[in-house]
């Protein structure tokens, strides 16, 4: 029963974050890009959260920050899931040499940490939000292919796929009408856990200053710029840090406990 309660809490937290992103202009009427007063004002002097180092309203920046902070890893995850699932599904359905080739390629790619791969891509494509999406999305593919392949393999080994073939179904039909729907719940759980990874990866890249425009509010970049004023204005670092950590924590929790409802 306790677990149930925790789950509700997690869902509530995520819903709040998503809502915050969508209705940011309703929550605060302040422009997060415009300096409105002197820099580094404390929350007491300028409620509710003070101003950042450039005199912008920090509450507005945190609120608007939810937009990019959530959508970058979300888009990256969609990219990973789409490409990753297509590749592993093809590998399983075609089988034979193709499968072995894809497996070998995946293993080789896995030997390079995903974050490193993402950084290389950012260096090649130049900094910017779209680059971060592509880099995190592509960087996650090898790991996703490996795990989704084993999900498909498990389903394939249950007899009824062979039965479908016996009934004359085409490979495409088996893939789309049998394998994919049966794997959906496990894939969803995998995608959720992967979303947490993508969130962490995005934060790392934007923390390292690779997101291009720091005036666009994003929590990872805020973590980086707040650090410069750690002693004077610790809330500039701690608030985005807590938001990032709690969001990743809830996604992890939901992803892991999705299967054993």
């Amino acid at each position: 029963m306790r677990i149930h309660w925790l789950k509700i809490l997690c869902v509530l937290w995520l819903a709040t974050m998503v809502l915050m992103a969508i209705i940011a202009p309703i929550i605060t009427s302040v422009d997060p890009y415009k300096p409105i007063g002197s820099p580094l004002q404390s929350p007491q002097d300028h409620p509710p959260l003070g101003t950042d180092a450039l005199g912008r309203d920090f509450f507005a920046r945190v609120t608007y920050g939810a937009r990019l902070s959530l959508s970058i890893p979300l888009l990256a995850t969609l990219l990973t899931v789409f490409v990753g699932t297509s590749v592993s599904l093809t590998a399983i359905v075609v089988g034979g040499l193709a499968d072995r080739f894809i497996l070998a390629l995946t293993n080789a790619a896995l030997a390079i940490p995903g974050l490193l791969l993402a950084m290389l891509l950012v260096a090649g494509l130049g900094p910017g939000i779209p680059t971060v999406v592509i880099a995190v999305g592509l960087g996650g593919i090898p790991g996703f292919v490996r795990l989704s392949r084993s999900i498909f393999l498990g389903i394939k080994e249950m007899g009824y796929i062979d039965a479908a073939y016996a009934l004359g179904a085409s490979r495409t039909r088996v893939a789309l009408a049998h394998l994919l729907p049966n794997a959906a719940p496990q894939l969803f759980s995998l995608a959720t856990t992967h979303f947490a990874w993508a969130f962490m990866g995005t934060t790392t890249l934007t923390f390292l200053g690779l997101s291009g425009d720091p005036s666009v509010p994003e929590w990872g970049a805020m973590l980086n710029s707040g650090r410069m004023h750690l002693v004077q204005a610790p809330w500039l670092t701690i608030i985005p840090g807590i938001l990032i950590s709690l969001t990743i924590l809830t996604i992890h929790y939901l992803g892991e406990n999705y299967a054993d409802r």
Partner: peptide
């Protein structure tokens, strides 16, 4: 960027790493 947007300019800012 904030100052230029103020007079109606669309500013695309990039910090080169």
């Amino acid at each position: 960027k904030a100052g230029w947007e103020n007079i109606g300019i669309d500013v695309e800012l990039t910090i080169a790493p």
